[in-house]
């Protein structure tokens, strides 16, 4: 153990900084489930996503749907249910905002 500790003293720390370089974040994998992107034109208004959303984050909105991201649990079920692939999961993860009203506008 002592040798292990002393050896580690001269190795690089394993900690990964949030910004690996200035303006450069740790890359996220391809399948990472982040913010939902919704193609309103492709949506046919079947409302199946509302039925399968486990968090109740999707509501009907003039024969289309709208998302409240503050309730979203990023499971990706809606994008799988959607028959027209109008809902896609992006890898965008920085969605922190200061007030609740800003979430709705996203």
């Amino acid at each position: 153990m002592i040798w292990e500790a002393l050896k580690s003293l001269f190795k690089k720390p394993l900690t990964v900084q949030y910004l690996t370089k200035p303006d450069e974040k740790v890359p996220v994998p391809e399948r990472y489930r982040g913010k939902i992107s919704y193609n309103r034109d492709a949506c046919i208004g079947c409302l199946l996503c509302i039925r399968t959303c486990p968090a109740g984050a999707i509501t009907a909105d003039e024969r289309k749907v709208s998302f409240s991201l503050d309730r979203c649990i990023f499971c990706g079920q809606c994008s799988e249910t959607c028959p027209r692939k109008a809902i896609e999961i992006t890898s965008k993860f920085e969605i922190v905002v200061y007030t609740k009203s800003e979430i709705a506008s996203q």
């Binding site: 500790a5 002393l6 580690s8 003293l9 190795k11 720390p13 394993l14 900690t15």
Partner: peptide
């Protein structure tokens, strides 16, 4: 700091 570096943290 040294304790952290021995644990491979930045500290």
């Amino acid at each position: 700091k040294v304790h952290a570096r021995m644990q491979r943290r930045i500290g």
